Simulated scan of single mutants.
Amino acid sequence: MDGHSKFDTRFVVWFTGLSGVGKSTLAQGLASRLRTLGYPTTVLDGDILRKGLCQDLGFSPQDRHENIRRAGHVAKILVDAGVIVLSAFITPFEKDRQMLRQLFLPEQFIEVHVDCPLEICQQRDPKRLYQKAQAGLVPEFTGISSPYERPIRPDLRIPTDQLDVIQSLDVLWQFLQGRYPLISPRPC
């Protein structure tokens, strides 16, 4: 395992879920908590990667696969460099989530399904994407004109229609502390 213990804090948390469920919000909140404790942490956000590294990709199933493949390899490079990576991508297809899992050692990959009914995501719609998709202005939009395959066995499922942001972060934090006992305040 290239010299690292089983409880090494090099891992990726891969947040998956529909647009508007809170993936980026949870990733940023968790990043803040981890950085406060001195852990090198970065957030990979699907919206940001699509403006740069993946700007040449559309939303066809093939392009979605390539988007996730690229993001997965960036996450792997960062994890190998000792960084905790928090990835917020819709990642709508189970085969792509399984492909991601294969890139990492089992203890390095955590799939978190940020779960919320489509109807509530449509009500939230902070970017008005659902509204645009229903008007036919956004083709192949996940949940409307393109499928979202619910994760079969995520490591953690967080129902953001039932928990607020702080409660969701607390559930996530408890899960991580159970899995990685070294995640605790570091001495200065």
Rank of each mutant, 00 (worst) to 15 (best):
M99V: 08
V171K: 15
G82V: 02
P117M: 10
K127L: 01
P92S: 01
F59P: 00
T91G: 06
T142S: 12
F93T: 02
P159V: 07
P40D: 12
Q28L: 15
Q102G: 06
V114Y: 08
I77S: 09
C116V: 09
R64A: 10
L49D: 03
R64I: 05
I68C: 06
L78C: 02
Q122R: 11
M1A: 15
S5P: 09
V165M: 13
V85P: 00
L163Q: 07
Q134T: 02
P187H: 13
G82A: 07
V43R: 11
P139Y: 09
S60N: 05
Y148G: 08
G20M: 12
T25M: 07
S32G: 13
P151F: 06
Q174R: 14
G52H: 13
R124P: 02
Q174S: 13
A75G: 06
T25Y: 12
K127D: 08
L103P: 08
H65S: 14
R179W: 10
I48L: 14
L156Y: 04
R33N: 08
R35W: 07
S145E: 01
G29R: 07
A75M: 05
H65K: 09
R33W: 14
E66I: 04
L172I: 07
L182A: 15
L137C: 01
Q62G: 02
D80R: 01
S184I: 13
K127C: 10
S32V: 09
W173K: 04
L129T: 04
P92V: 10
C116A: 14
S145Y: 07
T25P: 04
S168N: 04
Q162K: 15
F175R: 12
R101E: 11
P61N: 07
P154K: 03
I68Y: 00
I48R: 14
Q177E: 02
K23N: 13
L37A: 11
G136W: 06
G82Q: 02
V85A: 00
Q131H: 12
G20S: 07
F175P: 06
F15C: 08
L53R: 05
E149D: 09
V165T: 14
S19E: 04
V114E: 11
V114P: 07
D63L: 00
R97T: 05
Q122L: 01
D56Q: 11
K76W: 13
Q123C: 03
S184K: 15
F93H: 15
T41M: 05
F89G: 09
R150M: 10
C121K: 05
Q62A: 14
A88Y: 05
L156W: 05
K127T: 00
F89Q: 06
P92W: 10
V114A: 05
H65G: 04
R69C: 03
L34N: 05
F59L: 10
G38V: 00
Y39G: 08
L103Y: 14
K76R: 15
A27I: 02
A133W: 00
G82S: 06
Y148W: 12
K127R: 13
L105I: 04
G58R: 09
D115Y: 12
Y180W: 09
V138Y: 08
L176Q: 05
R50E: 01
P185M: 06
F104I: 01
S168T: 12
V171P: 04
V114R: 02
C54L: 05
I152N: 14
V112F: 03
R186Q: 15
W14M: 00
D8R: 14
K51P: 02
E149Q: 15
R186P: 03
D47I: 11
P106K: 00
D45P: 06
